[in-house]
Design a protein around this nucleic acid. Structure first.
Length: 392
DNA sequence: GATCCACGGGAATACACGGATG
DNA sequence: CATCCGTGTATTCCCGTGGATC
């Protein structure tokens, strides 16, 4: 987020704002520079990456853990820091590539929620490796692949590539990534990241290293919530006891805890209170479905799908009674240059990926297959607020 | 002109139900 | 009674088209 946006957000909430100082600070989808409470996992990752410090390529690895354990946060933060520190400590060679020494690997993080095709994967790789801008279409997939292969032709070029959000419903699986990237060069180490337990993943790829990221301990989660709310909420807006309650409820899932905190704060703010009452806290927790789809998932959806979701969550109950009705209602107001049929397809896709759920409604009307009611499976108040802030 | 991608529309398939059939 | 059939929706699949980019 750029500076202008930040300032504008402050303007919107204003200094008089009783509860929330900075939405970004309590956002479950915010980028974290310094992951907290994950010391042991960081150490394991650093152990695994040890060959890097001698200029070698590590083996392939798989990092896994339940939702909301901070897998993505840890790896992205670690990779960012590593490339910063390793490149600045050695002489820089100026080429068309990003600043890199000859024997320092590139640390790349690819989100398969966005890069979900071979074309997308090659594009993401090149985009990280090269300064120049990479064509987004109009060029053959094979052409991009060739460029990646060419990049790795020099023997001293290597990379550690984290491939995040593997095996999500409707998403990319490890074997697809392995087929696409692994054959390019031996000097590429793949680090798969996903929820599926390590013994469940099947891939035609050797993965010697398996690292599990455990759920947060209760006290660790309290620490995180404390840090976040001291950054994003006003002084005294929430009590330590309330944070403990949240952490207890979330049971190690930082995503859900933050989402509930965000909702509760937002509710209190809207109601004009200067601190969170038990009512808001409870409502906040109730606003997070169990289990909940990740807001990060929603956040990375394409523009039009987010628009559809934004409208969906404001529909009255009676228009959620069938996919057909919802699609029609979504297309109704204001300009959407989408046909009802396309919105319908989006809704089915979103249901497929678990962001919304189709609940079969008991049919009594007789004729035909009964429709299904649509239920969002993510914390809608958070999405609504962040989406609307982004609009301005 | 080539290529990728998002849309859109229609075909094919699945499912539910009541009624007919064996 | 079990199974099949016809009708009506819901859901999934598939592919052509046009826009955007190179």
């Amino acid at each position: 987020m750029d500076l202008t946006t930040r300032i504008r957000r402050r303007q919107q909430t204003g200094n008089s704002s009783p509860v929330i100082r900075d939405y970004e600070a309590i956002s479950p989808v915010a980028h974290i520079d310094e992951p907290a409470q994950r010391g042991p996992t960081l150490e394991r990752l650093l152990d695994y990456l040890d060959p890097v410090f001698d200029g070698h390529t590590p083996t392939n690895a798989y990092v896994w853990g339940a939702t909301g354990t901070g897998k993505s946060a840890i790896v992205t933060a670690l990779f960012t820091q590593l490339s910063r520190l390793l490149t600045s400590s050695a002489p820089v060679i100026h080429t068309s590539t990003r600043a890199q020494t000859t024997d320092t690997p590139a640390f790349i993080h690819i989100d398969t929620r966005r890069a979900d095709s071979p074309f997308g994967l090659y594009h993401a790789l090149l985009d990280s490796l090269l300064e120049e801008s990479i064509p987004e279409q109009g060029v053959k997939t094979e052409a991009l692949r060739t460029r990646v292969v060419d990049y790795f032709r020099p023997v001293d070029r290597n990379a550690v590539v984290a491939v995040d959000h593997l095996n999500e419903p409707g998403g990319v699986d490890l074997s697809m990534v392995a087929e696409t990237i692994a054959p390019i060069a031996d000097s590429i180490a793949l680090v798969g990241i996903g929820r599926r337990p390590s013994d469940e993943i099947e891939a035609e790829l050797s993965i010697p290293e398996r690292i599990e990221v455990p759920p947060y301990e209760h006290h660790a989660l309290v620490e995180i919530l404390t840090a976040r709310s001291s950054g994003g909420l006003t002084e005294g807006a929430i009590s330590h006891e309330q944070l403990r309650r949240l952490a207890n409820w979330a049971d190690g899932n930082a995503h859900d805890a933050l989402a509930a905190l965000f909702c509760a704060a937002d509710f209190a703010e809207a109601a004009g209170y200067d601190r969170l009452r038990e009512t808001e806290l409870t409502e906040g927790m109730n606003a997070v479905p169990q289990p909940s789809a990740a807001l990060g998932r929603v956040h990375t959806l394409q523009r039009n799908r987010q628009l559809v979701l934004r409208r969906l969550i404001d529909l009255p109950e009676n228009e959620l009674e069938s996919v057909d009705a919802a699609a029609d209602a979504i297309v109704q107001p204001a300009p959407v240059d989408l046909s009802s049929k396309t919105v319908q397809r989006f809704l089915y896709e979103l249901a497929e990926s678990g962001i919304i759920q189709r609940v079969p409604v008991s049919s009594s009307t007789g004729a035909g297959r009964p429709p299904s009611r649509l239920e969002p499976r993510f914390p809608t108040p958070v999405f609504r607020r962040l989406y609307d802030l982004d609009e301005n």
